[in-house]
């Protein structure tokens, strides 16, 4: 148990931008910080629009990926919230 709130309707925090760099791959850009994402992490963040619930994000990911783990998505969002990349509640 981490003590963090559960993600409900996650969204990117203001000032966070997703982009793709030819050398580094999928990135989230923050002031003075770069987050290098693997492809599934980038796919999760692409669905964090502040209106789609955690369950909805998992559902959308299941259209692209076989064997999506809701627990993986939840853990990722909690870790990204700790680093101020996402807000967990829109």
């Amino acid at each position: 148990m981490t003590g963090l709130p559960e993600p409900t309707v996650p969204r990117l925090r203001p000032g966070v931008r997703l982009t793709r760099d030819p050398a580094r791959g999928e990135l989230a850009l923050l002031p003075e910080r770069v987050v290098v994402l693997n492809d599934t992490a980038a796919a999760v963040l692409a669905h964090c629009d502040g209106t789609t619930s955690l369950a909805g994000i998992v559902e959308r990911l299941a259209e692209e990926y076989e064997g999506v783990s809701a627990e993986d998505v939840r853990e990722l969002l909690l870790r990204l919230a700790q680093r101020r990349v996402v807000d967990l509640h829109g």
Partner: peptide, 24 residues
């Protein structure tokens, strides 16, 4: 006649952070 695109295999999402100390 349309083929559905094959789904990719899910793997654990992960990331690394780089503190740039400057505007990105």
């Amino acid at each position: 006649g349309k083929e559905l695109p094959a789904k990719k295999a899910w793997h654990r999402p992960d990331f690394v952070t780089i503190d740039t100390g400057m505007e990105v």
